[in-house]
């Protein structure tokens, strides 16, 4: 059952191992706190461009590694040639990847997506719910040192030369990696679905008596309840 208010969420804690099975995914509820141990691979625009636009063969058999992906790239130091030490990791905004994440789930078995800001209700309904997949938000969005502590090593890195450090596909060995917050559960319920409703209520009265600007711009939204993406 979906709670109606973010104040009521139990925020239960879960410690999961990758690949995360359907039963574990099914137990996660929006607002729960998750820590992960195992393998996670990073991916953002550069990786998706290679895999889905250029149709390049994946550099590694993704399903045999893990079913968890992370919209991020690390701050990483090369301690010796080919020896990488991850100092910090922070998520990047996930709404930009709505076209490609469903492909990642359908073609490569991804069932747990970690990112920033969640995705749209349409993607949750059409893809996450269908596949029993879960979206985890990183906390605060700028706590990269804590996440860096959870990264125990770099298992492998692919397409580093072509994509550069910030867009390459990093396969990270993680332990107690977190905390993350469940944003979309396997039934397609969304934490931001609740939170956006609440903030629209508190913002609305503040707009009273404040006129629209004299000069408008084409292509903009004017209702503060509309999202900008």
């Amino acid at each position: 059952m979906t709670p109606g208010d973010t104040s009521d969420l139990p925020m239960d804690e879960h410690r999961l191992t990758t690949p995360v099975g359907a039963e574990d995914l099914g137990r996660l509820k929006i607002g729960d706190v998750v820590f992960l141990t195992g393998l996670v691979f990073t991916g953002r625009n550069g990786l998706y461009q290679k895999l889905f636009e250029e149709k390049a063969a994946p550099p590694v058999d993704i399903p045999s590694l893990t079913n968890v992906t992370f919209h991020c790239s690390p701050a990483v130091a090369e301690k010796a040639p080919g020896v990488w030490e991850v100092a910090a990791v922070t998520a990047t905004a996930s709404f930009r990847f709505e076209k490609h994440v469903p492909m990642l789930m359908d073609q490569y078995g991804v069932r747990l997506v970690i990112g920033k800001g969640g995705m749209s209700p349409e993607v949750y309904e059409k893809h996450f719910k269908r596949l029993g997949a879960v979206f985890l938000n990183t906390v605060g969005y700028g706590i990269g040192a804590q996440y860096g502590r959870g990264v125990k090593g770099v298992r492998e890195v692919h397409w580093l030369e072509e994509l550069g450090i910030a867009q390459a596909m990093w396969v990270l060995e993680v332990e107690g990696f977190g905390p993350f917050l469940v944003e979309c559960d396997s039934q397609g319920n969304s934490l931001y679905g609740l939170a956006l409703g609440e903030s629209n209520e508190t913002l609305k009265p503040l707009y009273e008596g404040l006129p629209l600007p004299s000069l408008r711009r084409l292509g903009e939204v004017h209702n503060p309840e509309d999202e900008v993406f």
Partner: peptide
Amino acid sequence: QKLSKFVLLEIVNNYKAAVDDQRPMCADT
């Protein structure tokens, strides 16, 4: 608020983790 307090406390923890480990506080530097 429970959720907001959780997030703020993790932010405070993160400031400390960065200094204790001498690692960047956020990976997007």
